[in-house]
């Protein structure tokens, strides 16, 4: 029995560690986005959604675990590489990195209040207030 409990706990822990991320926008948006579209928005190479409206990406701070998942699985780069990329733009007047907030809830609050904002959260925290446009496990 105790073996089974350990197994369940282990499975849960593994699940927790591998929790995916979901990219979210305001529910009024009807477009879909590819990982490449999201990458372009979060690396400053694009500033608009497919429908032409201005996109404002919101990031999570580095101490939120899902940030590393997003950087590696969606942007395809380590957090250090992303930081190096933004320091190139920031210190040469070419761009400013996305604003960072501390929690999934803050991202949800921003996204549901503004159709221009795009963010990402741990997939299990997605609510009906927002629309998931991309999910990565």
């Amino acid at each position: 029995m105790s073996k089974l409990v350990s197994l369940i706990i282990l499975t849960l822990l593994t699940f927790q560690a591998q929790a995916g991320t979901s990219v979210i926008v305001h529910p009024s948006n009807s477009f879909s986005l590819t990982a490449d579209d999201v990458t372009r928005l979060f690396t400053g190479r694009s500033k608009t959604f497919p429908d032409g409206r201005t996109a404002v990406p919101v990031n999570l701070t580095e101490d939120v675990a899902v940030r590393a998942v997003f950087d590696e699985k969606v942007l395809g780069r380590s957090s250090s590489q992303i930081k190096a990329h933004w320091s190139k733009l920031l210190f040469t007047g070419k761009g400013t990195p996305p604003k960072e907030v501390d929690s999934d809830q803050e991202v949800i609050d921003l996204v549901k209040s503004n159709p221009n904002i795009i963010g990402y959260i741990s997939s299990e925290n997605a609510t009906g207030d927002v629309k998931v446009v991309l999910s990565v496990d």
Binding site: K83, A84, S87, K88, F91, T92
Partner: peptide, 22 residues
């Protein structure tokens, strides 16, 4: 942009002082 900027000779000129970027 207007003011004091960088003379952009090389690929890394603009952020040459920001060693973290390379």
């Amino acid at each position: 942009n207007a003011g004091r900027i960088r003379t952009p000779f090389y690929k890394y000129t603009d952020f040459i002082d920001v060693g973290y970027a390379y």
